Simulated assay, not measured.
Amino acid sequence: MLRVLIADDEAMIRAGVRGILASDPAIEVVAEAADGREAVELARGHRPDVALLDIRMPGTDGLAALSELRALVPGTAVIMLTTFGQDEYIARALDEGAAGFLLKASDPRELIAGVHAVAGGAACLSPRVARRVIAELRDGAGARGRRARELAAALSDREREVLGMLGAGLSNAEIAGRLHLVEGTIKAYVSAILNRLSVRNRVQAAIIAYEAGLVGGEEPR
């Protein structure tokens, strides 16, 4: 059973999200918060597998709560859930260690799939958000691309292979299946990759994989 915390200052939104998640018997909503401060306190008490945080909340907003959660409850994967799709929110959320970013206008199936994805160690980006991120990577491919290739070059061949699959959005179980390895071995590879790249989570590692040309068969620039 996946344990989920919902944080949004609008009761109607919380009820809607709770209703969507209730349609999946494998998900249990264990706590709800109306602001970021309450979300952090509840997460510390309940230790949910996944926290869904609205970006715009009174007092401590979702981005500030995200930063605290990553420090205090690192085992909780965080998905930012918002009506806003501005690039600055996306960049800040990913920078602070969000495992996913979904728009409230997303298909309900996206929300359920996203919860399962981040709980399983994968990343989750709304297609509209992913398009923005990829476009930004392409627009600034020069210096960032060179740096990403330098970082990737310091990895072993197997680590680069795992990084490319991680960048393609595969979960640990899926990568293990592709490489005919046990999932525990993939977890160890991913942990080593994150440490060697000096990044907080899989989303940031995936961005480096894109920048280094390791995803989708693209040649490095």
Rank of each mutant, 00 (worst) to 15 (best):
V4C: 06
L5N: 09
L5G: 01
A7P: 15
A7H: 03
D8M: 06
E10M: 15
M12D: 08
I13C: 01
R14E: 11
R14D: 10
V17Y: 00
R18F: 03
L21H: 05
A22E: 14
S23K: 06
S23L: 13
P25R: 02
P25I: 00
A26S: 12
E28I: 00
E32W: 02
E32M: 06
D35K: 11
R37D: 02
R37A: 01
E38Y: 02
V40A: 01
E41P: 12
L42N: 07
G45V: 14
D49F: 02
A51K: 06
A51I: 04
L53E: 04
D54H: 12
P58E: 07
T60Q: 02
D61R: 14
D61E: 01
A64K: 01
A65F: 02
L72M: 09
V73L: 10
P74I: 09
G75T: 09
T76Y: 05
A77I: 11
V78N: 09
T83G: 13
T83L: 13
F84G: 14
F84T: 04
F84S: 00
D87I: 12
Y89F: 13
Y89M: 10
A91M: 15
R92C: 06
E96Q: 14
G97Y: 03
G100W: 03
G100F: 01
L103D: 02
L103P: 11
L103E: 10
L103H: 14
S106L: 12
D107K: 15
R109S: 10
A113L: 08
A113K: 13
G114K: 10
G120P: 09
G120M: 05
S126M: 12
S126E: 08
P127Y: 08
V129F: 05
V129W: 07
R132V: 10
V133Q: 09
V133L: 06
V133W: 06
I134K: 12
A141T: 09
A141F: 10
R144Y: 08
R144T: 09
R144D: 08
R147M: 11
R147F: 06
A148H: 03
R149D: 11
R149V: 11
R149C: 11
E150P: 12
L151W: 13
A154M: 04
L155I: 12
L155N: 05
D157R: 14
R158F: 05
R160I: 07
E161M: 15
V162G: 12
M165L: 14
L166T: 15
G167I: 00
G167H: 05
A168H: 02
L170W: 02
L170R: 14
S171A: 13
N172P: 11
E174W: 00
E174A: 06
I175L: 07
A176M: 11
L179N: 07
L179A: 04
L179I: 02
L181D: 04
L181N: 08
V182W: 05
G184H: 10
A188R: 14
A188Q: 12
Y189C: 05
Y189D: 13
V190K: 07
L194V: 04
N195K: 15
L197Y: 03
S198K: 15
V199Y: 11
V199H: 00
R200F: 05
R202S: 07
V203C: 05
Q204R: 04
A205R: 13
A205T: 06
I207V: 14
I207G: 05
L214P: 14
G217M: 03
E219Q: 10
E219A: 15
P220G: 14
